[in-house]
Amino acid sequence: MKPISLKNAALVTGLSSVLLLTGCLEDNDSDNDSDSSPEPITYSYEVTTVNLTTGQPLSPLAVIAHAQSYSAFTIGEPASSGLELMAEGGDNSQLIEEAITNGAFATVSGTGPVAPSGEDTLTFELTEQEAQTAVVSVTSMLVNTNDAFTLVSGSLSELAPGETMALNGLTYDSGTEANSEASNTIPGPADSGVGFDAARDDIADQVTMHGGVITVDDGLESSVLNETHRWDNPVVRVFVTRTE
C-alpha cells in the first residue's frame, strides 16, 4: 500500500516546471532582477470539483485556503455549528465565517448545487507568503442524506505554476442528526424536507466517516431514498491548478 498522495501525478507533470525554474536561477546569476523593487506576487488557483455520485447532488461548494493549523473538523470530536448547518442543510455560510475567524487566507462559495456527474470551478488568490504554507479544503453536503458531507484537503505549498493536483474526497457523517432517511428530514430533491435542525440526535455527537445510506430498496421501509441514492467513496474528485 502506498501513502495517500495523489501528488505523484502532479510531480510528474511538474517536471517541466522544475526545468524552467532551473533556467531562471541561471539567469539570475547576473543579478539584474535584484535592483527592481519587489512587487507583491499573486498566486492564483482554479479548483474544479467533479461530483462522482449517481444520485447525490452536492450543496454549493465551499473552497477554503487556510494554514495547516486549521481543520474544519476532527474525527471523534463534535461538529462545529457551521459544519452542522452545512452537513444538515447545505448552507456553508457559517462554516466559511468560522474559517475566516480562524484565519483563513481565502474563501469562496459556489453559487448553486453541483448535480451528479456535474462539476463546478471556483478560483481564489493568495499572496506569496500565504502560498508557502497554505492548504486548500473543499467541502459540501450530499443533499439526499441526513447529514453526510465530503471534505478533502491538499497542500498548495509545492504546486508550481501550471501544475495540477488531483484529490479524492471521502464522505463523512457530521454526527449531528440521526440517519433516519425519514420523510421530511432530508433537504435534497429526494425529499425536499427539513435540512438543519439544531437538535443533535445521532448515535454519538462526533464526526466520523459515513457508512452510506440504506434506502428503501435495501429494506429500510421508512426511508424516502432509493438505491440510486447510494454511493461509494470517493464521491468527489477535485483538481487544483495553480494558474499563476
Binding site: 474525527i75 471521502l170 464522505t171 440517519n179 457508512g211 452510506g212 454511493w231 461509494d232
Partner: peptide, 13 residues
C-alpha cells in the same frame, strides 16, 4: 444493525 454498523472504506487512518 444495518443503520449503525455498515461502513464505507476507509475504516481507519
Amino acid at each position: 444493525d444495518a443503520t449503525v454498523h455498515r461502513w464505507l472504506n476507509p475504516v481507519a487512518r
